[in-house]
C-alpha cells in the first residue's frame, strides 16, 4: 500500500492523528455554527435557573441537601447533554457529509474524533454548570478534590455512553426521542454512581479509595472498549 503511485497514507499516520483531525474539524464547525453548544447551554441554563428559583437554597433541610443537590446537579448535566450530544453523528447525515467521511476515514478514528468532540462539549458544559450550580444553590462540599474528580470521570463516562448511542441512532427516524430512550438505561448506572459520589463528597464521609470514581472510570473504559469493537459494524451499515 505504500509503494507505487497509490500512496494513500503517510508512514506516520495513526488512528490518533486521524481522530484529532475529526475532532478539530468538529470543534471548528461547532465554533462557527454553535448548534450543539447553544442547544446544550440553553437547556442547562434554563433548567438551572428554574431549579434555583423554585427550590433555592432555603427550601431544603440541611440534612437532605447533599443528596438532593447531587441529584439535581446530575439531572441538569445528563439531560442537558442529551439535548446536544446526539448531534455529533446526526449532523453528518443531515449535511450529506456522512458518505464522504465513510470513504475517507477509518471507522475507529471517526469514533474517537467524535468522542473527543463530545467530551469537549461536556467539559465546557460542566465548566459552566457546576460552579454556577454551587453558587446559586449554596452547595457546601466537604471533599472538593473527590467532588471534582467525580464530576470529571462521570463526564467521561457520559461522553463515552452517549457517543456510541449517537452513532446508533443516526440513520433512524425520530432520532431525538430514540437517543434519550436508548441512552437513559445505558447512562443510569453511571448517573446513580455519580450522584452517590457527589453526595459523599459533599458530606466528606467514607471517601477513602474514591469507590465511585473507580466505578465511573471502569464504566468509561468498558464503554470505550466495547464501542471501538461495535462502531465499525454500525458505521458500515
Amino acid at each position: 500500500m505504500k509503494k507505487g503511485r497509490w500512496v494513500t497514507r503517510t508512514g506516520s499516520s495513526t488512528y490518533l492523528n486521524e481522530a484529532l483531525a475529526v475532532w478539530i474539524r468538529d470543534v471548528r464547525g461547532e465554533f462557527r455554527t454553535r448548534y450543539a453548544v447553544n442547544a446544550i447551554l440553553m437547556f442547562a441554563v434554563t433548567t438551572l435557573i428554574a431549579v434555583s428559583f423554585s427550590i433555592g437554597a432555603y427550601r431544603i433541610e440541611d440534612a437532605q441537601k447533599p443528596f438532593l443537590y447531587a441529584v439535581l446537579l446530575w439531572v441538569i448535566i445528563v439531560f442537558s447533554a442529551f439535548s446536544g450530544l446526539s448531534r455529533s453523528f446526526v449532523k453528518e447525515e443531515e449535511a450529506g457529509t456522512m458518505d464522504v467521511l465513510k470513504l475517507s476515514a477509518r471507522p475507529r478514528a471517526v469514533f474517537l474524533g467524535k468522542l473527543f468532540f463530545n467530551l469537549t462539549l461536556l467539559g465546557a458544559l460542566e465548566l459552566i454548570i457546576v460552579p454556577t450550580f454551587i453558587m446559586f444553590m449554596g452547595y457546601d462540599i466537604a471533599s472538593t478534590g473527590f467532588f471534582l474528580v467525580m464530576v470529571i470521570t462521570a463526564g467521561f463516562g457520559l461522553g463515552a455512553g452517549t457517543t456510541i448511542v449517537a452513532a446508533m441512532i443516526t440513520q433512524t427516524g425520530a432520532r431525538g426521542a430514540l437517543f434519550s430512550v436508548l441512552s437513559f438505561p445505558l447512562i443510569l448506572p453511571l448517573m446513580i454512581t455519580a450522584i452517590k459520589g457527589c453526595e459523599r463528597a459533599a458530606l466528606g464521609i467514607a471517601t477513602a479509595g474514591w469507590p465511585e470514581v473507580r466505578i465511573a472510570l471502569a464504566y468509561t473504559v468498558i464503554m470505550i472498549t466495547v464501542s471501538l469493537f461495535l462502531f465499525p459494524l454500525i458505521w458500515e451499515e
Binding site: T8, S13, N17, I24, R25, A95, G96, T97, D99, S104
Partner: peptide
Amino acid sequence: AFSLYNELTGIENLAFFHKVRGL
C-alpha cells in the same frame, strides 16, 4: 448526494480530507 463541510472553507475542507486520510 455527497457534500463537503459547509462550515469549512475550500482549503480547510481539503486540509481535513488530507489529514483524515493520513496524507
